[in-house]
Write a protein that binds this DNA or RNA. Structure first.
Length: 584
RNA sequence: GGUCACGUAGCUCAGUAGGAUAGAGCAACUGCCUUCUAAGCAGUUGGUCACAGGUUCGAAUCCUGUCGUGAUCACCA
């Protein structure tokens, strides 16, 4: 493919100079076509040659056409001002041979990226509630990007920071102290702590309602008078002053949550190279802020809080009571990472787009502090919505599936029910569930809102993860039945049908797709590609008999194509981390 | 109100480095299991690409405005 494009560029330049006396370095954008049978395998639009008029464009086309025909290019045709190129059978033969012999990594991936290290920060939950569907999108996008970068040759550090410090933790601590201390914990740790948080919010709401009635004041004023909130704030000061009793409860709750998170991650086959805790990093942030108090940050002399001016707004970085905030932690964590990892190439924060302002402010501060020579990048994805509103763990859906654990259970049951007559074992059902969930969340462009809907989102027909897994198993079952290693391809007996040509062309496109995915960080590009080739593969399977073909040569060729299909499916499924099945 | 996204078939989404006739899946209807795994294949129906201007030989794609939806604008994280 590339050599054809290069050749066209070289020949064209000659024509421009000799025929039209035009000296410029125009580069062609050629497109692969595997959608429309009436048009060429490779094409470009002659109108893009803006420096020639319509007549000249066609003269150019005709000269170019005659010159490019060779053993790989059979023919050319100009239709509607489009220059179409048609491949010879030898072209397909060569590509099949290449795909069969070489490792896909070598064919599909540029080697320039070796030794560069990328740190990807994703998931980063607060340790006051279980992981929910909002986190799920974050986890899956981050994990897939990490996978792709790894396959591209980068060294990847998958990093997670657990936000285990702050008001939210203290709310749980207070709730535990007041109402749950003597009760037994009989549910998953993260679910228990989530319950503490919800209970606290309920009690707080009650108190606020009472206060607003009693003193006839608005909510803001009531919040200031709240006894519960006062307790929480005191607890936060205690926490940052390392009060032993407070830290003991904090650690207990923290451990419960982390254990719960680990179980959930394991179900999804998600792993991290490092897990950091805000409790270990926030002091670094606090220190550097105090160090730069006069030149970058400002002290409010009335109440001793410290703020940074961003877009004419005062952003508080240290509270009047001396405790730190989200952004304090963010600065500290970056410092911690820089110390820990030397020679990073880039840091990518996979965080929701609602934090766009936060990251812009954060990056600005880092630039002024002049502490980081690495590229910082916020990859923002959009929300998961339910009934038009952003999903939060406190919302309960109809079937209670707002949490990741609940979603997995739900899908698991659904698949079990659907394939009841097939008597699948639990391991296969589990792999199908995970595949379905991952595919469903990743197939939508990250910059778009996912409107979560149980019926549509978890449809098990058509364009979904199971379809891909099934396609793989179908082809595998053929290969399993026959020893294929000794088969040799011979061009003399080479025969290929149109649907097989389409497939080869699509496989060639894999390289472009990967490059485009990484350029845009859009996971849906690769997923949709996988779906398109799977459709072609199923078409190939239905129309071309393989083991039952009488002609031995044709059977050999189709077996080899089947083997190549498996290679491609395996490679791409691994990138997305959809579980691969060996049988059903 | 300011800022940032998004608006494509009844529903869920592709297509946006301008380019040929706007594509899939679900839902509805029609065929195909004695045949390598029917979790599949093939087909029919379904579109004012939110609306209005502009740029261009050419706009779903770029620009401007309007409308609609969501996020954000905390001494929460």
């Amino acid at each position: 493919m590339n050599f054809i494009i290069n050749k066209i560029n070289i020949i064209s330049r000659n024509i421009f100079i000799k025929k039209f006396k035009i000296y410029n370095s125009f580069k062609f954008l050629l497109y692969n076509n595997y959608y429309n049978k009436n048009f060429g395998d490779l094409y470009f639009n002659l109108s893009t040659l803006y420096f020639l008029n319509y007549k000249e464009q066609h003269i150019f086309g005709k000269i170019l056409g005659k010159k490019i025909i060779n053993k790989y290019i059979k023919n050319y045709k100009i239709i509607n001002n489009y220059f179409n190129i048609y491949y010879t059978n030898l072209f397909y033969f060569k590509n099949i041979k290449l795909f069969l012999k070489k490792k896909l990594k070598k064919i599909l991936i540029n080697k320039n990226n070796k030794k560069k290290t990328i740190l990807i920060d994703y998931s980063s939950p607060n340790s006051n509630k279980p992981l929910h569907l909002g986190h799920l999108r974050n986890i899956l996008i981050g994990s897939m990007l990490a996978n792709i970068y790894k396959n591209l040759g980068f060294k990847v550090i998958k990093s997670q920071i657990i936000n285990n410090r702050g008001i939210h933790i203290c709310k749980c601590i207070i709730c535990y102290k007041l109402f749950f201390k003597k009760k037994n914990i009989y549910i998953k740790g993260d679910h228990f702590v989530g319950k503490l948080y919800i209970e606290f919010e309920k009690k707080l709401n009650k108190e606020i309602k009472l206060l607003t009635k009693k003193y006839n004041i608005n909510k803001k004023k009531a919040l200031k008078r709240s006894k519960l909130l006062k307790l929480v704030n005191l607890e936060l000061i205690k926490w940052e002053n390392k009060n032993k009793k407070t830290l003991k409860i904090s650690n207990k709750l923290n451990n419960l949550v982390i254990k719960g998170f680990k179980e959930t991650y394991k179900k999804l086959n998600i792993e991290f190279d490092e897990i950091l805790y805000e409790s270990d990093t926030y002091l670094l942030g606090k220190r550097i802020i105090l160090k730069n108090l006069d030149n970058i940050f400002n002290l409010n002399k009335n109440d001793n809080s410290i703020y940074y001016i961003y877009n004419n707004k005062n952003i508080i970085v240290i509270r009047k009571n001396g405790t730190s905030l989200y952004i304090t932690q963010e600065i500290g964590t970056l410092l911690y990472r820089i110390k820990r990892h030397k020679n990073l190439y880039k840091l990518i924060y996979v965080v929701g787009n609602e934090q766009k302002d936060h990251f812009q402010c954060f990056f600005e501060i880092i630039k002024k502090l002049n502490i980081c020579k690495y590229k910082l990048f916020h990859f923002s994805y959009n929300n998961v919505n339910y009934l038009g509103k952003k999903i939060k763990s406190r919302i309960k859906l109809n079937n209670n599936i707002v949490l990741i654990d609940e979603l997995i259970n739900f899908v698991n049951k659904k698949i079990k029910k659907k394939f009841l007559n097939k008597k699948l074992n639990n391991n296969i059902i589990y792999k199908l569930s995970i595949g379905a969930i991952k595919y469903e969340f990743l197939k939508i462009n990250p910059k778009k809102i996912i409107n979560f809907n149980i019926k549509n989102t978890l449809s098990l027909k058509g364009n979904n993860g199971i379809y891909i897994q099934y396609t793989y198993v179908r082809i595998l079952s053929i290969i399993k039945k026959i020893k294929i290693n000794k088969i040799k391809l011979n061009y003399k007996n080479f025969f290929i049908k149109d649907n097989e040509k389409t497939l080869i062309k699509q496989l060639i496109d894999n390289k472009n797709i990967i490059e485009k995915t990484i350029k845009t960080n859009d996971t849906s590009i690769l997923i949709n590609y996988l779906y398109i080739i799977s459709k072609t593969i199923n078409n190939f399977y239905n129309y071309n008999k393989i083991l039952k073909t009488k002609n031995l040569n044709i059977m050999k060729i189709r077996l080899i194509i089947s083997k190549i299909i498996l290679k491609f499916l395996y490679f791409n499924m691994r990138m997305i981390d959809i579980p691969i099945l060996k049988n059903i």
